[in-house]
Amino acid sequence: MRKNINVIKELVRLRFQHLMMFRIGFFGPFFVDGSLFVVQLMVFSAVYANVERIGGWEHGQMILYIGTFSLINAINMVVYFFGVNSIPAKIKSGEMDLYLTKPVSPLLRLSLEHINPGSLPLILMSLVIIVYGAWEAELRIETGIVLSYLFWVVLMCILYYEMEIIFRSISFFLISTAKMEQLESACLELCMQLPGTVFYGVYKVVFYCILPYGIMATVPVKSLVGECTPATVLHALAVVGIFTGITCVLWRGGIRCYNSASS
C-alpha cells in the first residue's frame, strides 16, 4: 500500500514535470477545458430553459444533476481518463510488455500515468454549479447529507472508471474497439443531458444495469435531495459491486491472453 502511494506520488510528480516542459501545453488545457465547459453549460441552458420538470425533477435538481455529472466527469478527466484511454494503443503496439514486467500493478501505473491538471478548473466550475443548484433547490445542507453525497460521488467515480476499463480491456481480445468507444461516448452524452429518473422499461434496464451511466449522477443527487430509497441504495451498491467484479475478471483475463505484438 505504502509502495503504491509512493509510486502514485512519483507518477504525479513526473506528470507535472512532463507538462511543465511545454509552457503552452501546460496552461493551454485550462483555457480549452474551461471554454468547453462554458459551451456545455450554454447547451444545457438552451435545453432546459423552457422545461419546468424533467423526470419529476425541478429546475434546481436538474442543475444539481448537471453539476454532479460534470463533477464526476471532471474528476475522471483529471485523474485517470487519459491514462486509461491509452490502454488500447499500448496493447496493440506491444508497449504493454514494459508495464507487465515491472513490480507494480500495470493498471495502477497506466491509469495514473497521464493525470491531467488542465481539467482542474472543471472540478471548480462543477462545484460552483452544485452550490448554485443547492441554493436554487432550497436544500437544507447538513453534514450527514454532504458526506452521503460525497460517498456516492466517489463510488460513482469508481463505477465510471470501471466502465472505462471494461471498454478498453476488450482490446485484449479484439483488434479494433473504436466502435465500443463510440458507444461509450454516445451513452455518456445522452446520460449527461438526461437524469436517470426519465428512463423506464427497457431503457431503464440498459442505463441502470447494462451500461449504468444512468445512475452515475442520479444516485448522488437523489441522496442530496432526500429521494434515496433503500432500493436505490441497494441497486447502486450491487451495480458497483458487480461491475468491480466484471472489471477484475476482464482485466485479469485480458492480461492472461495478452499475446504482445510482433517486434
Binding site: 509502495k3 509512493n6 509510486v7 506520488k9 512519483e10 507518477l11 510528480r13 513526473l14 514535470q17 512532463h18 516542459m21 511545454f22 506491444g94 508497449e95 510488455d97 514494459l98 514486467t101 515491472k102 513490480p103 507494480v104 517486434s263
Partner: peptide, 29 residues
C-alpha cells in the same frame, strides 16, 4: 529480473534519465 528491448523504450522521452530513475526507485522500493 530486468528486460531491455532494443525497440521499446522505458524512458520518459521529454524528461531526464534522473526523472525516470526516480520512478523506478519507487517501483522497486
Amino acid at each position: 529480473y530486468a528486460v531491455v528491448m532494443g525497440q521499446k523504450s522505458q524512458l520518459f522521452m521529454e524528461l531526464t534519465v534522473n526523472d525516470t530513475l526516480r520512478l523506478f526507485k519507487e517501483i522497486y522500493e
